[in-house]
Design a protein around this nucleic acid. Structure first.
Lengths: 217, 217
DNA sequence: ACGATATTGAACAGGTTGTTCATTATTGTT
DNA sequence: AACAATAATGAACAACCTGTTCAATATCGT
């Protein structure tokens, strides 16, 4: 059973076509099983055996699709992130329209607020993925994704280095770390404040000092 | 071979007395071996076998002292942190004296600067412990230690919640996250700036916005 | 020198991983 | 409906790692 035969997308290059229904079914079952297990126990304690038992999938089938447990989690995480990005782009589009039409600010949703809200809606999963039992590389990947969004946004409005100003990258790293740090703390303490409240504090502490009078989003 | 017999400090309660020379020797060998290995490969890839081979210690001896690999790393980390704390307290004491005698500011070393400098001196070890291959729980323990220092410091000078001000804990979490984030980025990029420079940016981005006109340390 | 205690090393069971392969089931396509 | 292609199965397997046990030995503190 060749690797390239069954799943070029995940184990190989990038020729993505979602051919066979069996392939989609198997991968969906495996990811669903992983998600279930993530809500039950720490990722470290989940074995491949657990996953294939839950998914009702043969052992050899698992390895025909994924290199190992980490590979499955990585694919799963990327799927989640893609969904998030899609939703996020929709929000941004709505915001732009609202801005053009001159709607009041309350209707608009800032990017960071959306992230806090999304984490609130899926807090059990967020906790499992980036909480205290989360894998370091997943947390880093999460932070990197957010950092990238921030970098793109800031590069447009940041005047660049001048005098003793910090380089863009320093700025972005600091802001992103603060954001993730607050987010994890918030999740680990079971959301003691509203998403709006946390987001507001984040902006006061990490965003406004940098942007000054510039408006967010 | 009872657990309590050989090492009450590490496997049991807190009756610490460093009795037998053999015990100190073994634990020292194991920690030294772990340190060596940490500089060679990722912690995940290090096996108990690797450690005892490097340390020239029997397998059963290892388990007479530590519950598992994680327990050894935890003990090792705590030893490092204790050393750091000791040095740090010395610096703070010097600073206080310099302040009383009215020495110029250049002689004083802020707490965060000392951390950046310490990381610079031991950057290979820092990278192994909190870098991209670091274990999540170690990174968290590191951050928690720093957060605790910050919390103690801030609780003395922070006026407390008033109006829409963020609670002390939010503030501390944000600052600590920013600090660790910058530190890790700095380490992972092989120290592209001086410790003083990074520390200065950290203060501008995360400390000054909070403290305002208050003087550091 | 002596009793107490730590170390040794081999052996062991139990668990997990990733692979193999012949057989069976399902798919997409005429 | 029939066909060839291909995915899934499940059992078996070697390899590895973990943590434990125990009798023999070495080293310690006093």
């Amino acid at each position: 059973m060749e690797v390239s035969t069954q799943n070029p997308t995940l184990k190989n290059g990038d020729e993505n076509k979602l051919k066979d229904r069996r392939i989609r079914r198997t991968q969906q079952l495996l990811m669903a099983a992983l998600e279930e297990l993530l809500l039950e126990k720490a990722y470290t304690d989940i074995t491949v055996q657990d996953i294939i038992d839950r998914a009702n999938v043969g052992r050899s089938t698992f390895y025909a699709h994924f290199l190992d447990k980490d590979h499955l989690l990585k694919s799963y995480f990327e799927k989640l992130r893609d969904k998030f990005d899609e939703q996020f782009q929709r929000i941004r589009h709505k915001n732009r329209q609202a801005q053009l039409k001159g709607y009041p600010d309350e209707i608009r949703v800032e990017g960071t607020l959306f992230l806090f809200q999304h984490a609130q809606s899926n807090h059990r999963l967020y906790k499992a993925l980036i909480g205290k039992d989360g894998e370091a590389w997943v947390i880093r990947q999460f932070q990197d994704s957010f950092t990238e969004l921030l970098r793109q946004h800031m590069s447009q409005i940041w005047p660049g280095e001048q005098g003793g100003e910090a380089p863009l990258e320093i700025l972005v790293q600091s802001m992103a770390s603060s954001m993730i740090g607050l987010l994890v703390w918030w999740l680990e303490h079971d959301l003691p404040y509203s998403a709006e409240q946390i987001n507001q504090w984040f902006h006061r502490l990490a965003v406004q000092p940098v942007l000054g009078e510039l408006s967010p989003d």
